[in-house]
Simulated scan of single mutants.
Amino acid sequence: MASILVVHGPNLNLLGLRETDIYGTATLDSINKKLESMAYEKKIDCLFFQSNHEGQIIDYLQQHKDHIDFIIINPAAYTHTSIAIRDALLAVSIPFIETHLSNPSKREHFRQTSYFSDIAYGIISGFGAKSYELAMLAGIEYCQHNCV
């Protein structure tokens, strides 16, 4: 069975509570439940991981590299700072979609640089919680065409 890993970066555990004018009112749990349902419907296994710590994200990617076919990652603030997570994604060599709830291009200048976009399979941003759903649709399609 194909497997998709969804990685949520720092502060995403507070979705639905923090800056709802930017990130919306959906909670991380509601997003995960929707994605799990989408994957289950297509007979694809789905794993979820959230951490506020860069090293934990790197460790998780490395530890699960042999069991994952595709990654959806919202690096959150690490988008603009983490060469280490970028290197981990290159090292595990698993296709991934960079996703964001907001559109970083319309945010502060420092949020407009991504260390991931140039190595990503694709980028989906600016659609709130729907960004994750669109990424899941793309991940499912990838797995249906490329995974055994």
Rank of each mutant, 00 (worst) to 15 (best):
L47H: 12
A88N: 01
A91T: 10
E54P: 14
Q63E: 11
D66T: 12
I58T: 14
I85L: 03
I83R: 13
H67P: 01
D45S: 14
Y78T: 03
H100P: 07
G55P: 13
Q63I: 09
Q50S: 13
P104Y: 00
L90V: 13
A84P: 09
P75S: 07
H67W: 05
C46G: 04
L89P: 03
P95L: 07
F48Y: 14
D69G: 15
I72H: 06
Q50P: 15
I68E: 02
T79E: 01
H100N: 12
A88E: 00
I83C: 06
I58H: 09
E98D: 09
N52Q: 09
L101N: 01
T79V: 06
D45E: 14
F48W: 08
H67E: 13
I72K: 05
F70S: 09
H67F: 13
H64V: 00
G55V: 10
F49Y: 15
T79L: 01
S102T: 12
L90H: 02
I57V: 15
F49R: 12
D69A: 12
R86I: 00
T99F: 05
L89A: 01
D69T: 12
L61V: 07
I57A: 10
I57G: 11
Q56R: 15
R86G: 00
D59R: 15
R86D: 00
F96W: 03
I73F: 11
Y78A: 02
S51D: 09
Y60S: 11
I94F: 01
Q63H: 09
F48S: 13
I71S: 02
I83T: 12
I97M: 06
F96S: 05
D87F: 00
A76H: 08
F49K: 14
L90S: 08
S93I: 00
C46V: 14
Q62D: 06
I72C: 07
N103H: 03
Q63Y: 10
L90E: 10
D87C: 00
P75R: 04
S82N: 07
Q56K: 15
L47G: 09
P95W: 02
I44H: 04
A84M: 02
N74Q: 06
H100Y: 05
I72A: 08
P104V: 02
Q63L: 14
D66K: 15
H64M: 04
S93H: 13
A91D: 09
S51H: 11
Y78K: 03
I57Y: 09
I71A: 03
Q50R: 06
I58N: 07
I73S: 08
S82Q: 07
I68V: 15
N52R: 08
Q62F: 09
T99Q: 03
D87L: 00
A76F: 04
I44Q: 05
D87Q: 05
I97S: 04
H53V: 12
L90D: 01
L61P: 14
F49C: 13
G55F: 07
I73H: 10
H67R: 14
F96K: 02
I73E: 03
L47P: 05
T99R: 02
I97R: 06
H67C: 10
G55T: 10
L101Y: 02
S82T: 07
S51A: 10
A77D: 03
I57F: 09
P95Y: 04
S93Y: 02
T99I: 06
H67A: 14
I68Y: 05
A91H: 08
N74L: 05
